[in-house]
Amino acid sequence: MFRTIDWYTPFQQLRREMQDLIDTVAPEFAPAAVRPYPAVNIYSAGDALLVEAEVPGVRREDLEILTTGNELTIKGRRPGDDENLTFHRRERGVGEFTRVVTLPIDVDADKIEATLQDGVLTLRLPKAESARPRQITVKAG
């Protein structure tokens, strides 16, 4: 089975910045979106990781968050109108999504906190004991 390997390299950042540039100056030139949804930002905050994602319109009860080891899965559904409406413009996504994110360090899956506010999902994932920085004392020789 195929899986998206979700690691970060400077080249991906370069590509993203180029893509942002293309999107800004010539959006019609951009290829059809194949990037995973939702985009996530990962922060290190002391002894926890913060993962943030913009999921406007997604209700709390339609969100599912799973972790195993250092893998985080965000599942959800963006509501859409089932009526036959006349769209003059349609840019917003509709339907189910699953995003699998490989976290840069292991987290303590039992103590994850999630909040959803104004369409922004914020997860606080305490770093696993083994992943926390440790002070090593050098013994006097």
Partner: peptide, 15 residues
Amino acid sequence: MAANTMPTCEAPKRA
């Protein structure tokens, strides 16, 4: 494990 899926016609955030 499930692969990444996304809602239809979702464009990236544009500056």
